[in-house]
């Protein structure tokens, strides 16, 4: 201990304290502060950059998901449209078929009706003609038959006999 005390130099101690404090203050202002600030800034920068990258990645994922969704939507829409078109087409075909059928039936019916009426008219005509002819024939026959007396009497007898018979 005595040796240590003997070795202790006050001058050296004072110089050391002065120089060290001076060095500490100078370095604090001109070295440590800028160094630590720079390092801090850099670390902050790295942290921010990483966060930004993460954010961008998420954004990217969102965008991809969105576009995927859009694509999906477009696809479904297209399918729906196609389906609708097909349905419309089918319906149109069916409708026109129906229409055509109805129209045809109507026309057939009309034709039939016309034919029927024509037929009736024709039959009526024929009947008239037949009646006229019959009357003419009957007239002729009667005229012939009533040309002599015998025949006239005979006919009256026949007719009377028919009536008796009836």
């Amino acid at each position: 201990m005595e040796k240590l005390l003997n070795e202790f130099s006050l001058g050296l101690f004072v110089w050391l304290t002065l120089l060290f404090i001076l060095l500490l203050l100078l370095l604090r202002k001109y070295a440590w502060k800028p160094i630590l600030d720079a390092v801090n800034d850099r670390e902050e920068g790295i942290k921010n950059a990483l966060a930004a990258a993460e954010e961008a990645k998420k954004e990217m994922q969102n965008v991809t998901a969105d576009s995927e969704k859009l694509l999906q939507e477009a696809r479904t829409e297209r399918e729906a449209m196609l389906k609708e078109a097909r349905e419309i087409k089918d319906k149109m075909i069916a409708d026109s078929k129906e229409q055509a059928k109805i129209e045809g039936d109507k026309m057939i019916k009309q034709a039939q009706a016309t034919i029927e009426s024509e037929k009736k008219a024709a039959v009526a005509e024929i009947k008239n003609q037949v009646a006229e002819l019959s009357v003419e024939i009957a007239e002729k026959v009667i005229k012939e038959q009533l040309s002599n007396k015998d025949k006239q009497l005979k006919m009256v007898d026949d007719m009377l006999g028919d009536i008796k018979l009836n």
Binding site: G11, W15, L19, Y30
Partner: peptide
């Protein structure tokens, strides 16, 4: 003394070194 001189030299060296780093 020699030690004080050395402290002085070391101080200058440190100051130069770390300010240039800064």
């Amino acid at each position: 003394t020699k030690n004080v001189a050395m402290i002085f030299i070391t101080g200058l060296l440190m100051f130069w070194l770390f300010t240039s780093l800064a």
